[in-house]
Amino acid sequence: MSPGIPAPDFTLHSTPDQTVSLRDFRGRPVILAFYPADWSPVCGDQMALYNEILSEFQRYDAELLGISVDGVWSHLAFTEQRKLHFPLLADFEPKGAVARRYGVYRDGEGTTERALFVIDGDGIVRWSYVSPIGVNPGADGILRALEGLGKGKR
């Protein structure tokens, strides 16, 4: 999924009775953070870091969406336990379908890559990064990409 390509739209559950669609955020930047699984310690660190810097993302009016193949009940428990303040989406049924459309599904493992996408207000992918699976990619790349949006056509 290279920069300049329209981001595939999707609708996924964020809680047992709520769904989130990418198009809901048209007009604002969106950060998609695919991660392999709730509860694994590395993921916890990555989501914990993003949780700390939500206010920085909000400076760019950007919405952060975490996505994994875990189900809504796992996401709910994980969100509560880690006190996360952003939605986690369940790419659960059909499993990994959204990750596949973004080219970040790992067939052998049955999980997504640890992949980041920054999508602009027009729904165009402007930056992406796939991290080695065991490595927390941090947030510096996301922040640079959000800064770059301001200097582009928007």
Partner: peptide
Amino acid sequence: DFMSGVRSGVNG
């Protein structure tokens, strides 16, 4: 300090 860390790739 925290943000200088984020900018430097501190992730934990």
